[in-house]
Amino acid sequence: MPYKTDSDLPEKVKDHLPKHGQHIYREAFNNAYEQYQDPTKRRDSKEEPEKVVHKVAWAAVKNKYEKGEGGQWYEK
């Protein structure tokens, strides 16, 4: 299910990403959520859509941020 606000994100995201990273995650997640509901648009049509969209969202975050010690993310 898409996230309406950054405060709706999972704790795993909110606890480790800075605000801007959370926004990137939410936007990427919501866009991918719409796109990958159709199994023909996923590489592996058997993979759960929720899992796919989380992967897409983390990939978007990794374009701007990198994970540091303690699991916190920092802008590149």
Rank of each mutant, 00 (worst) to 15 (best):
residue 60 A to H: 09
residue 47 E to F: 13
residue 57 A to T: 04
residue 68 G to M: 09
residue 20 H to T: 06
residue 8 D to M: 08
residue 76 K to T: 01
residue 62 K to Q: 15
residue 31 N to E: 15
residue 73 W to P: 11
residue 41 K to F: 00
residue 5 T to I: 08
residue 72 Q to S: 14
residue 58 W to T: 07
residue 60 A to T: 02
residue 54 H to L: 14
residue 25 Y to G: 09
residue 61 V to P: 11
residue 48 E to P: 05
residue 33 Y to H: 13
residue 54 H to G: 13
residue 30 N to V: 09
residue 12 K to Q: 13
residue 17 L to E: 05
residue 14 K to A: 12
residue 72 Q to P: 00
residue 25 Y to V: 07
residue 6 D to R: 00
residue 65 Y to A: 01
residue 71 G to C: 13
residue 21 G to F: 02
residue 15 D to Q: 14
residue 41 K to C: 04
residue 74 Y to N: 08
residue 60 A to W: 12
residue 43 R to D: 03
residue 60 A to G: 10
residue 28 A to M: 03
residue 57 A to Y: 03
residue 26 R to G: 10
residue 23 H to P: 01
residue 74 Y to C: 07
residue 58 W to A: 02
residue 69 E to D: 14
residue 53 V to F: 05
residue 52 V to K: 10
residue 38 D to S: 08
residue 17 L to R: 01
residue 9 L to N: 04
residue 10 P to F: 00
residue 45 S to R: 15
residue 33 Y to I: 04
residue 8 D to R: 01
residue 40 T to F: 07
residue 59 A to W: 09
residue 21 G to W: 03
residue 14 K to F: 00
residue 52 V to L: 09
residue 54 H to A: 14
residue 72 Q to I: 14
residue 42 R to L: 03
residue 52 V to N: 01
residue 55 K to I: 02
residue 24 I to M: 02
residue 8 D to F: 04
residue 52 V to G: 00
residue 39 P to W: 01
residue 41 K to S: 07
residue 49 P to H: 13
residue 12 K to V: 14
residue 76 K to R: 11
residue 61 V to K: 06
residue 60 A to K: 12
residue 68 G to F: 04
residue 18 P to Y: 03
residue 57 A to R: 06
residue 34 E to D: 15
residue 53 V to S: 06
residue 71 G to K: 04
residue 30 N to T: 08
residue 47 E to N: 12
residue 26 R to L: 08
residue 66 E to N: 15
residue 32 A to I: 10
residue 23 H to K: 08
residue 52 V to F: 11
